[in-house]
Amino acid sequence: MFDLAHILDVLIESYPLFIKGLWITLKLTFVSILIGTGIGLVFALFKISGIKILNWIANIYIALIRGTPLIVQIFIFYFGLAELGISAFWSAAFGLAMHNGAYIAEIFRGSIQSVDKGQMEAGRSLGMTYGLTMRRIILPQAFKRALPPLGNQFIIGLKDSSLASFIALNELFSIATTQGSRTFDEMTYLIIVGFYYLILVLLFTLLVNLLEKKLSAGE
């Protein structure tokens, strides 16, 4: 079963196919994380706004997303958005973004609330508005603190993107399953695709660590 020479052979000969899938996975992850971070920030601000209606909206959103399986969400987005003529890629991207957004909202909320209350007071006492103090003083500090859990969530997001294979998107994982069933060599392809994900995650971790170091300069 673990014929390393065989796995290496398949790895080398199949790489053009996998690179295509890898590219889609990367695009999907990047887009969904970017939108998800935006969504997360908005809902985090809703949650700390102290405005009841915004609070409720954020709570309902987070409860719905956390309370249902991602695969269900992806299918709902896929079938829902297909009617509007939106492609499988973008339905998967939106689905993943909405999903990540809920978790990122909680990460941001926690990190914003962990910034000392005195920072907001100092900003306000200088005549800065709530929004300005939030943007210039609180969020830069909060973002720095959010980075480790955010990096973690990004890694989860990257791996979760494999679920997009269920809506016929030719990303990394779907390449492995189609090749596996075509050649009856499933195990080899699964090991190979696992290897691709592992490399991606390691590279990504490295990137987050570098960013963390850069942001902590001066403190």
Partner: peptide, 16 residues
Amino acid sequence: RQRVGMVFQHFNLFPH
């Protein structure tokens, strides 16, 4: 508040 400055016990400087 622009006309009324404030200094806090814990300084509250912006660390970043």
